[in-house]
Design a protein around this nucleic acid. Structure first.
Lengths: 126, 126
DNA sequence: ATACATGCAAACGGTTTGCAGAATA
DNA sequence: TATTCTGCAAACCGTTTGCATGTAT
């Protein structure tokens, strides 16, 4: 992977964004510094960085994909009202893991807990 | 909601399908008996039935939506290889629920456990 | 008669891709 | 120079929608 100014700006945008941005949000952020960048380039680089393990791509049911600079195992909270995605620490889930892995005739490779609700920010405003 | 032959065939297709079909799969099934049915009608009715609670619409990250005739609370296994979706009983998850609800500053309305892996069928063939 | 349904085709939103030209190594 | 990158625009896929017609009540 060769250096590119655009990719660095994209990486930086994801790291600085407090609540995991969509590709479109990254596009908007990067455009402030690099007005001629194309959306295609943003998508290409986000996918590339995710594939290299430098970023996490979070696919959500029914919504746009999000990107996360934190690559260690953790879970996410999705606000139903504003659509923002927050990190959450669920701590030790070995009980759940053991139960899942106890299921016969299916080789478990991973699992994800998606939690939905209303975030503090939205709760205050209503 | 008024009776329609098409809707009955759609409902039946979902009930009979062993591993929760996509809209497209339902379309293919129903077309055998109702060759002129349109894909739009299939989507409209699946969404309608899901909204009435007669069906479950399962949104998967990165894949097409699936439909499930079982409407009680249960979780799902997604095969990475063939893309089929299976039902799973995780039993009592009150520990996890309590932990999730213990999170401050977020009003939890729901959560979903998505488990990925290789199904028996695919494991045998390789 | 009046609602609600259908088939069709066009629109949609998010994402990917093919291409010619530009930047990096 | 060889490779990887970019911007652009068109293609793509799953899904939704507008419309004129048809069907159930």
């Amino acid at each position: 992977m060769k250096y590119s100014r655009q990719r660095e700006l994209i990486r930086q945008a994801v790291m600085e964004h407090p609540v995991h941005p969509t590709a479109d949000a990254v596009y908007a952020m990067v455009r402030e510094r690099e007005p001629n960048i194309s959306l295609g380039t943003v998508y290409r680089n986000l996918n590339q960085l995710a594939q290299q393990g430098e970023l996490l791509k979070i696919c959500l049911p029914g919504a746009s994909d999000r990107f996360d600079a934190r690559t260690d195992a953790h879970h996410h909270l999705l606000c139903d009202r504003c659509g923002r995605l927050y990190d959450i620490e669920l701590g030790d889930l070995s009980g759940l893991e053991a139960r899942i892995r106890g299921i016969t005739d299916f080789t478990v490779t991973g699992y994800q807990v998606y939690i939905t609700g209303i975030c503090q920010n939205c709760a205050e405003k209503h």
